[in-house]
Every structure is written in C-alpha cells, then in structure tokens.
Write a protein that binds this DNA or RNA. Structure first.
Length: 579
RNA sequence: UGGGGUGUCGCCAAGUGGUAAGGCACAAGGUUUUGAUCCUUGCAUUCGUUGGUUCGAAUCCAGCCACCCCAGCCA
C-alpha cells in the first residue's frame, strides 16, 4: 500500500514530471473523492490578450485534465464589463485553439450564470448572511480597518432580511445609481484576513455588458462569482495563482453557506448519478520571465501608447506576438512543461524559452539560405551564363523532409560578415587568398577584393574549385562553410531581426521609475536588402525556416506582400563563436 | 507591528525520515559541408540560518533571518 502511494506521487518515470498539483490529483483519485472525475477550467477575464504566463495556466489545466481522462472548460470570468470586450474574447479563444487545446463543449461565461448567481445572493440574504450596504466605496475603506487594526461594522449590517431583500431587488431593478448601494457578505469585520471583512458581492454598474447587453445593472464580484461558477460546472480542481490564496477562505465560505442541494440542482451534472462534491481551490506560482514585462496593465499601455506595434508585435510576450514571431505552439507547450509547477515564486530565465523554440525548430524547420547583408561575389572561372541546379537536403538529419533545388550562378551574394581582410584569430570564414566552402556547393578561393570610392568593399572575385562538389578538396582542409544566394535568382526580402524588448532583467521592478527607460533600442532591426533563395516560396507548408547559420525565421503573413516578402527572426542559432 | 505564503547548484525543479533526480546555463573534449545539431564528460559532502529529536534529517520540532501577497464596489 505504501508502495502504491509512492508510485502515485511521482510520475517522473512515465515522462511527465511530478508536481504538487499532479500529486494532489493522484491522491484525490486514489481516495475516490470525485468518483474518478477530474474537471478543471481555464478562467480568463477578457480584458486583454493572453500572454506566456497564461500559457502556463492553460497547459496546466488542460493537460492535467487530459492526463486523467478529464475535461477542461473555458470560462470567461466576465464580471467587470467596464474593462472587457468581445475583441478580447475572440482573441483568447483563438489563442487557446492555436496552442492546441480543446475545451469541453461550448464556451462558458460567468455572465451566463448571472440569474443563478442572483438567486444564490437572495439565498444568502434570507439566511442573514448578506446585507445591502449604503456605505460609499470610500467609507467602506475606512470601515475596513487596516492590516493591523480590525474593521468596524457598517451601520447597515443589521438591516432586516425583508429590507435587504427589497433593496437588493430594487438594486437589480435599476432604482439606484452606481455606488449608492452594494451587497455585502456578513462575515467578520475583525477578521485578520481582510478578504473576510464583509466583502462586496454585488455592485451597481449602469453599463452594458459584452455578453448580456443591458440586461443587468448590478454585477457580481469575482470572489462571489468564481466559486459558484466552479460549483455550477462541477469543477473538481480549481487551479489559480498564489495571490488568491487569501481568498480561499471566502471561496469556501460562500460555497459552504449555500444550500448544497440548490447548488447541485443547477449544476451541469444535475440529474446524473454522481455524488455532488464542492470544488476545491489550489494555488500555484504564476510564471515570471526575466527581461519581460507581464503585467496586463503595462502591456495594454505599451499597445495604447505605441511603444510597440500592437498586441501581436513579435516582441510582445503575448501568444499573438509570439506566434507572429515564429514560436510554435509545441515549443510553448514544451516550455510550460519544462518550467514546472510549484508554489515558490520564481523567475524563469529567458534561455529556457529560447531553448524550447530552438529545440523544436531544429527538428521541424526546413533549412534554406538567406543573405542578410549581401556582398557580391563573382566566380571568375565560370561562364557568364553558368547556371547549375543543386539539390540540397531540407534537413541535415531528416531525409524524409525532402530536398530542394537551389540555383548556382556565376554571381552570388555572401554575407559581409563572412569576409574579413584582416581576420581576427580563429576566423573560419573567407579571407583574401583563402578558401571557404559554399554551403551545399563548391569550395571557392578569394583572389581579388574590389573596393568602391569610399573604401568599402564592393565585390569579391573568387575562383571555384570545380572538383569539390559533394567531395572534399584534395590535399588540404577547408575550415569554413558560408551560405550564399544567387544574385540573379535570389529574391529580395525584408528581414526583421528581433531581440529582447528590455535590457534589464526586471522591467517591472520597483527600482525602475519608468519601464520606457529600459527599452532595448535595438529590439528591432529591419533589413530591407536581404536576398533569400527562391525555394522558400515554393508551395511549402512551412511557415518556419532555418536560414542556415543565421537563425530561425518565419514569414510575416501580416506584412508580406507579393513583391516584398517579410521574414521575422524568431531566434538566432546558438553561437559559440559570437562575432 | 495583523494574516497568508515561500526559501534545494547562476536559473527552473524533483525530493514527503534512509544518506541530494532532471532540464536550462556554463566548461572541456569528439563528430560535422550550418562556428548549428548530435555525442561524451564535468558542474550542491549539501538543501535560508541556529539549535533540538533520531542510529540516521532537505524531509520532524523550536527559534531566528530574507523575500512575496493582502487594506478595489479589479480579477
């Protein structure tokens, strides 16, 4: 028995890393707490775009359900219409699908439960556990006390049940203005947990809601709504982040003070032969990434003030931005799995994310060549009309990824960084009188350096060793390999080189007055004279490529045009030389 | 100074009384027509700290220290 318990605790041998949430679910399953059910939910508020931090929660909730044959709902926690919109609802749904997850039947909305929520509020009032308060928000703050001092009861706290019922009905009917009344739970104004000092359950807001329109002028608060929504959806494990830990007593208080049969009766599984069990909240640490800002308020501000180009700017940590940057859904899922789930607040190093995308793209991205900063090279011992079609493997290790045709001509481009007149020690690229391998092609030797009037190198004359295609040259070793593109058949393209948006580890640190002071001035470098091999535009089904020796790039579908393709650099290759 | 949490390698993170997994990063070799990938090796005598219990402690107990969260009619 002890052996069995230990096995259920650690699933690391099975490939899925052990964490305290998986362990807890395994224990709940072992004790048959929910009759074998595992039902989670991802509950975003549609007040912004999803970011990589949300991805951690999405992966956790959906994976943990799937691993146990359970379900995961998508529920919009839309109780604050002032900040929410349909645009965000749509973007969030889209992002979750893109990430590769499928929610249990139709999308849920907390607003879909407004009527039931109202009924439960009436129930609390009838039980003498909630009252209508006329304190203003400001007064309520004063009555609440402080961290070290208990609060004091509102003068309205002992209002009669009848009067509370009447007032609450009139709140709903729209008889009062915003802020004039609120419905509060009657708990304990002296509680050391401030969340228990008669928290507000309903507030008056004469404002339209993106889902319910003008049907309501009172809206329930998060604390009141979330637990009941979980209960209605028969959620077994309600996973949320650490800052809600203090709210758990309230979550439990609300649910335990409602008649369990009435909860069960309006739940999704009503009528099915299951033993109705209340959901339980478990908290985990949210994801933090260095060199990244994750606060929704700040992200929204960057969008609104044009610091970046929008929610899907490839420098944004949003899923929309990362997608446009070229991150694959799988790499994000792998990353989320690799950072683990714990209760210690940690800051994950950017290199972990970079590893995840390189790891995925190395295996999946077809190779191609693109010259970022072109330098003309004339191969003098080839005929002017020389044209040879070379067949290159799309992936050095994966033959199943096929081959492509690359035209080789008398004039080609190589990258300016691959030639040095005065090379530093250890330089393995082209130098005067030196040899280098053209990737997938011949070995060439530089015989002449041509400079323009400004002293800049304008062209290289080289000779081709015609006996080196697919074989090593005889009697010598060629140390370097360089990528190239035909000048006549290459396609001109714009390439955007992205780098981290911030140059400090924690742009949201209190020590920093304004994150704008920490913006990386070279987070985007746009190159407009790049030349890419034509095969990239063949009916390839890939959006992602490795431009050999440069990095991973993807086609920017938003800005590319028929005549001017745009590529975004997802991430550079690892570089142990770093020039 | 109230309450709730967290402290295991530079960064994540397993570990739940039997003698410190793994990944990232880093370093050194090997392979290589990508200075990539891949492979091999190295990388915590020690788990915030001080005591205690125990044959045995990262794991149990007590004190201390550091950091995070909470005083929205935001979520």
């Amino acid at each position: 028995m002890a052996e069995l318990e230990k096995d259920s605790r650690s699933s690391s041998e099975a490939g899925t890393p052990s964490n305290f949430i998986r362990n807890k679910i395994a224990q709940d399953l072992a004790s048959n707490k929910h009759e074998g059910r595992v039902h989670t939910r991802f509950p975003p508020e549609p007040n912004g775009y999803l970011h990589i931090g949300h991805a951690k929660s999405i992966c956790l909730n959906f994976s943990v359900a799937a691993e146990n044959g359970g379900l995961c709902n998508l529920r919009f926690d839309d109780t604050n219409p002032a900040k929410e919109s349909q645009e965000y609802v749509d973007a969030i749904k889209d992002n979750i699908n893109w990430l590769g997850f499928h929610w249990n039947d139709e999308v849920r909305y907390s607003s879909g439960y407004f009527e039931r929520l109202y009924d439960f509020a009436v129930q609390l009032i009838e039980k003498g556990l909630a009252y209508v308060d006329s304190l203003s928000a400001e007064q309520a703050r004063e009555y609440r006390g402080s961290l070290t001092e208990p609060g004091t009861n509102s003068p309205d706290r002992e209002r009669s049940i009848e009067e509370n019922l009447d007032l609450f009905a009139r709140m709903r009917a729209g008889e009062f203005e915003d802020g004039n009344y609120s419905l509060r739970a009657k708990i304990d104004m002296a509680s050391p947990n401030i969340n228990m000092r008669d928290p507000v359950l309903y507030r008056i807001r004469h404002i339209a809601h993106h889902q319910t329109g003008k049907e309501w002028c009172i809206y329930p608060t998060y604390d009141y709504t979330h637990c009941i929504s979980d209960a209605i959806e028969n959620i077994t494990h309600s996973l949320c982040t650490l800052e809600f830990e203090d709210h758990r007593p309230l979550y439990d208080w609300i649910l335990h003070n409602l008649d369990i049969a009435s909860l069960s009766n309006v739940s999704d599984l009503e009528g099915q032969a299951i033993n109705y069990v209340l959901p339980e909240q478990t908290e985990f640490a949210k994801l933090k990434l260095n060199y990244t800002m994750m606060g929704k308020r700040n992200l929204k501000e960057m969008v609104d003030t044009g610091v970046i180009e929008g929610w899907d700017d490839p420098r944004m940590p949003t899923l929309a931005g990362m997608r446009r940057r070229g991150f694959t859904a799988r790499s994000i899922r792998n990353f989320c799995e690799s950072v683990g789930v714990s209760r210690s607040e940690s800051v994950v190093d950017m290199s972990m994310l970079e590893h995840a995308i390189r790891d995925d793209l190395d295996k999946s991205a077809p190779r191609a060549m693109c010259v970022l900063n072109p330098l003309r090279v004339t191969l003098v011992n080839l005929e002017p009309e020389h044209r040879e079609i070379l067949s290159l493997q799309n992936h050095p290790k994966e033959e199943s990824m096929g081959r492509r045709e690359v035209p080789f001509t008398r004039e080609i481009y190589i990258d300016r960084a691959d030639f040095e007149e005065e090379p530093p020690a250890g330089f393995k690229r082209l130098i005067p009188e030196g040899e280098v391998r053209l990737r997938g092609s011949y070995v060439i030797k530089c015989t002449e350096v041509i400079k323009g009037a400004d002293g800049e190198i304008s062209e290289l004359k080289c000779t081709v060793d015609k006996d080196t295609l697919g074989k090593k040259p005889e009697g010598r070793k060629v140390k370097g390999v360089v990528h190239w593109v035909s000048t006549t058949e290459g396609v001109k393209a714009t390439v955007r080189l992205y780098d981290r948006l911030f140059n400090v580890e924690n742009p949201e640190s209190k020590e920093i007055e304004d994150y704008r002071d920490c913006l990386n001035p070279t987070s985007l470098i746009e190159l407009t004279e790049c030349v890419v091999e034509p095969s990239v535009f063949a009916e390839s089904d890939s959006e992602n490529f490795q431009f050999e020796r440069e990095g991973y790039f993807c086609i920017d579908r938003k800005d590319s045009t028929e005549t001017n393709p745009v590529f975004n650099r997802t991430i550079t290759l690892r570089d142990s030389w770093s020039s």
